[in-house]
Simulated scan of single mutants.
Amino acid sequence: MTPAAERRLLQAALCVAVAVPLVTAGIGIVRGAAWLTPGEVPADLDSHFRYLSGIFLALGIAFASCIPGIERNGGRFRLLGAMVVAGGLARLVSALSIGLPSAGHAAGLVMELGVVPLLMLWQARVARRS
């Protein structure tokens, strides 16, 4: 595969991956913690959930900003990826201490500790080949 074709394939994969934080953060901001927990949600939990959803939205926008010049945005991409991996490690602590989360959050864990590190390695390869 040519370097240009690989770059385009990475950009397409990132477009798909970036949809996850953008969509889920938007839902989290609009619906709050009640989106995941039926019944009454304490105000402090809902406030914190919406705050974290806002950060998640900003993270998705920041990742999206890397896509056009992905081969030149390695530093920013690695920093954002490190933030996602740190969040995944925190989620792993929860899974080990309290139990596995719902399927959606388990999929998030796979994204955070599997897909994002692989995308980071792929970005580094594309940058080297450019």
Rank of each mutant, 00 (worst) to 15 (best):
A103M: 12
A19Q: 03
A33E: 04
A82T: 10
E6A: 10
L22Y: 07
P117A: 07
L113P: 04
A124L: 11
Q11S: 08
E112F: 12
M120R: 13
P117I: 12
M111W: 14
E40R: 07
I70R: 03
I98D: 14
I61C: 08
L79K: 09
A58Y: 04
A64G: 02
V115N: 01
E112Q: 15
V115R: 01
L57D: 02
A106Y: 04
S47A: 15
A43M: 09
L36P: 06
G108R: 08
A107E: 01
H48A: 15
V85G: 00
R7N: 11
F63N: 01
P101C: 01
R91N: 11
P38F: 03
L89I: 12
G75R: 14
L119M: 11
L59A: 10
V41L: 07
S130Q: 08
N73S: 12
W122Q: 04
A12T: 15
F77L: 08
F56L: 13
S102I: 07
I70G: 02
V93G: 11
G39S: 03
S97D: 14
D46L: 08
R31A: 15
L119H: 00
L80Y: 05
S97Q: 14
I70S: 01
S94F: 06
G104H: 00
P3R: 02
V18L: 05
R129H: 12
A43I: 10
A90L: 09
S130W: 11
A25N: 03
A62D: 04
G60K: 06
L10E: 11
L10C: 09
S130N: 12
H105R: 10
A86R: 07
L22V: 11
A43L: 14
L113T: 00
V23D: 01
L113H: 12
L96D: 01
S47Y: 06
A4K: 05
A95T: 06
S97M: 13
A25S: 15
I55V: 14
R91V: 02
G81W: 13
M120H: 13
V110R: 08
Y51M: 14
G32K: 05
T2K: 07
V110D: 03
R91C: 06
L100D: 02
